[in-house]
Every structure is written in C-alpha cells, then in structure tokens.
Design a protein around this nucleic acid. Sequence first.
DNA 1: CGGTTAATTGAACGCATTCAACACGAGTGG
DNA 2: CCACTCGTGTTGAATGCGTTCAATTAACCG
Lengths: 217, 217
Amino acid sequence: MTLAYPLDDLRDRRPSAVLTEVVDRTGVRMTFRRGTEIFAQDDEVDHLYVLVSGAIRTTRIAADGRRQIGDFYYPGDLFGLEPGPLHQFSGEALSDCVVKISRRSAVAAAAGEAELERGMLDATRQELRRTQEHMLLLSRKTARERVAAFLMQIAHRDTTPATDLPMGRQDMADYLGLTIETVSRMLTQLQSEAIVEFEALRTFRVRRWQALENLAA
Amino acid sequence: MTLAYPLDDLRDRRPSAVLTEVVDRTGVRMTFRRGTEIFAQDDEVDHLYVLVSGAIRTTRIAADGRRQIGDFYYPGDLFGLEPGPLHQFSGEALSDCVVKISRRSAVAAAAGEAELERGMLDATRQELRRTQEHMLLLSRKTARERVAAFLMQIAHRDTTPATDLPMGRQDMADYLGLTIETVSRMLTQLQSEAIVEFEALRTFRVRRWQALENLAA
DNA sequence: CGGTTAATTGAACGCATTCAACACGAGTGG
DNA sequence: CCACTCGTGTTGAATGCGTTCAATTAACCG
C-alpha cells in the first residue's frame, strides 16, 4: 500500500475511522446554515462528508409527499454514504454546522484505493446496522416505546447530564413514523411519570434510566 | 491480483456477482429441509451463502418475543451477510432448499482479498438499499399499501404469469409489520377488486398491474 | 412587547389489532 | 371412502392506539 499522505498513526484504527481522519485532515471545510441542504436527493454520490460541529439529518420525500428521516448525524460522524450512484436521501443542516468534504478520488489518492474500499465497507456496515435497528423500531414498537428508544439513543451519546435535542418535533415524528401530536403526547407522558424531564423544549434530562431502558425494549 | 482459481470470465461482472460465482463454484453444497435453520442469531459470521434453489427468510426475535423478518431470498441471491461479527438475524429455509456455502477465507483465497472486499462492499450496499426500502414501507405505508407493495415485489421477480408465494401469512405479516389477520383481509380485498387473483393459498396472479403499482405507491 | 412559528392539548374518528369463531386442506387411520 | 385431526388461513365483532382536525399555549425573535 502506497501512501501519498502520512497516515502511519492510523494503522490501528478501524477502517472507517481512517476515512474519517483523512477527510477531516484533507477535506474542504464548509459551513452550512441551519436548514440548508448539503446534498440533494438524486444528486450524484461522489463525496465523503465528516461532520465537525452541529447536527445533520438525512431526509427522503416519497412521490406522494410522505417524509421520512433516514438518520441523524453528530460531530465525528461520516455521512452521505449511500448504496447507489445517486443519493436516495438529501442531507440537511439541523443547526449551523461545519462539514469537511472530500471527493472519493481524493481520499483514494491520500489513503490508497484499497484503504478507501476497506473504509467504505466498514462504514456501510455501520450504516446497515443502524438502518436495521431503525427498522425494528418502526415495525414492532408502540409510540411510547419509539419515543423512549429515541430519547435513550440521543441521551446515550453524550455524558453531560442535560441532553440537547437538535431537531424539532416534526423531525422526531418523521424519524419515528409517528405524527407530531403523538410524539408530543408521549413526551408529556414520559415527563409526567418522571422518567425524563424537559428543561426547555429541546433540552432534557433522563431522571430514571432503568425505567427508560425497560420502555425502549 | 493473484488468482488461485480461474475467474477470468468474471472480470466484467459487478463485484458481488464475482462472490456469488466463486461461492457457487467452490462452496460446499448443502441441502436444508423446510423450516430448518441455516445459521442462528448470535452465531459468528464467517460464511458466505448462495441460494441455489428454494427460498430463505432471515428472522430476528426481540427480547420480548416480537418477531421480525429481515428479508426473503431467492435462487441466485447471496445471503447471510451482516454488519457485525455476530448474526443479528437467523436464516431459515422456507422450503426444502439447496445452498452453496464458503468460508470467507476460502473466497479470499480463490478470488483474492481485494476482490473479496470489493464484492462485500457491493453486496452490503445492495443489502442496505433493500433495508432502506423496507424501512420506508414500514414507516409510512398503510396495510393496504404494504401488502400491495409486497405482492408487486414478489411478482416482479419472475416472468411466469402465476407467482408462487414461498412463505406463509405469518411470515408476510412479520415482514410487513402487520398481523396475520390484517394481511389476510387485505389479500381478500385486493382480490375482490380484481387487482390480484389467488389460484391457491400460495399462488397468485396479478390482474391489474397499473392498479397494483398505484396502490404500492 | 407584538408577531410568528413551534409545541401542546382536547375531542372525534378510523385503521389495524385483538379475541373468537369458522372454513379449508392435507395427512392419517378406520 | 369417509371421519378425524391438526395446522393454516379467513371472517366477524369489539376494542384501542394513534391519527386527524381544531383550538390553545408556549417559546422565539425582531
């Protein structure tokens, strides 16, 4: 393997982390305002994106207008990865954010074709796993369980006591396959049972972890 | 790339097709009786499977007993591919079937490590795409639309006028995130509207393609 | 502050589920 | 050939969860 860039300290990382590192180092830094599009549905897939700060959602609009959120991404995440040559989802900034972007060919040049492929495989696998979990949530969970699982997932990723929700209720609803009203009701319910507590509309704190875990099933 | 097996005629195929071909040629041929398990949930992922004849389902049982079908596989399909080191799904024979099985290391030896990885990436991408479509079906479609979409998907894959359903109603229900009763009702409904026609419990014929497509949304 | 968007709450509705009974088909044995 | 049984699928009636439609409240931002 020939390296056109010093990556020796990356050898022991998992393959997708190498990609992340390369993009973070060599990619073009771009900022996106809250609500703007980073890539669009039907765009060609040619870049790798690493989120530096802020939060991203991937969205898909069906022909009849029904909206679905593919996933949410946070700092450090690689995103914009898709199974085909065209984007099935669009990528949008949930908040003002900083993204590092590289063309695939640039990553291949920096890390080697083999390393790129290894990283892509690893990253695609992670994506598949997330999608499978998401599918399970959608297929057999009640509204209550979905919302609980969602809050747990979000709260799980940061250590700070108060967790920030970068997305609005509509985004949560479209991710969970529910309506905005149902999401709101479940949040109220979980709060009234002292399982979570909302300090603001988009900031909450888990009060009873065990209860939340049991619910999330 | 060094080849320990003659694969020159495979050069122009898509990467996953190379894997399929290698497994089909060099793998161990095994037969499974209807209803038997080919690999189990929590088994180590170490093999590649190519279905020669019959049909397969992948199943996942949640802690609380809720059952979900990941996907159905047909002759020519590569299956048993998963994102992690352990199987999240079990693989079961829907009918008596013939499967060719290779260890990953054997495929790597036959086709080369790079070719294996390229093929795995391609195959994982296909898997991801199927899962994404499945997710869309589960998140925002009505029972009627789900059943219609399912029948269309099945009917689409073969050219014979009468399509065989290798799975029972319970499997359909668990794939579609519905109950067996709802599936049955929707089938009756679609039939009463002359959109499809059941010649037997597990054999149907599409009467009005356009109507079915419109429904499947 | 007022104006605007986002979120919550309430009431009625409807789709899918649940619970229960019935029909059908395949296989077995009298 | 019919009776019996078991597994599978269908149909019916009642219930309930999440949606829909509508009104109210809360948060955000100039």
